[in-house]
């Protein structure tokens, strides 16, 4: 498996940037020729991870959010979304559906959504240092006449 394309993006943890992050990743993912549903899955998972950085990682402070995206020659997208916020004490517990420290307006479903909409989700976190979420999704190859012709 080789990396065929890559981007990195850094932005401040303003909620306004949730939409920007979704759109930016979606634009990058387009080169995999995803279906509308696959693209919506990626956007939703990115929205979950970025929102968690803003709402939980930085909460009342402002910090930087880092996204790194890679595409492989096996038609896979790998996304790494990272904050340098407060970190997660018990990752296993945090990933349980309906678990939330966010109060009555949060469903506690962000990680469950990421897991359901992506193929793989990995979480690393150090309390006081920050949290990194790595997600992968394989996009089914669709027959592409133009690419086929160009590649001989």
């Amino acid at each position: 498996m080789n990396i065929t394309n890559e981007f990195s993006l850094t932005f401040v943890s303003k909620s306004l940037n949730e939409g920007f992050a979704r759109s930016a990743v979606a634009s990058f993912a387009l080169q995999l020729d995803p279906t509308i549903n696959e693209l919506a899955d990626i956007k939703t998972a990115v929205s979950e991870a970025v929102t968690n950085c803003i709402v939980h990682g930085y909460e009342f402070e402002q910090g930087q959010i880092y996204i790194n995206g890679k595409i492989t020659d096996t038609n896979k997208i790998i996304l790494k979304i990272r904050d340098k916020g407060r970190g997660i004490e018990n990752i296993e517990k945090a990933m349980e559906p309906l678990f939330t420290t966010g109060g009555g307006e949060r469903a506690g479903l962000g990680f469950a959504v990421m897991q359901s909409f992506m193929d793989k989700v990995r979480v690393n976190s150090i309390v006081g240092k920050g949290t990194t979420v790595v997600m992968e999704k394989s996009i089914k190859k669709s027959y592409n006449y133009t690419a086929d012709r160009e590649n001989g």
Binding site: A40, K43, T44, G104, R106, A107, L109, V113
Partner: peptide
């Protein structure tokens, strides 16, 4: 057009 789990939280909150 788009919704994530914040929309679910919105529904559950309004239910309450």
């Amino acid at each position: 057009k788009f919704m994530d789990s914040s929309g679910i939280g919105l529904i559950m909150g309004r239910y309450r």
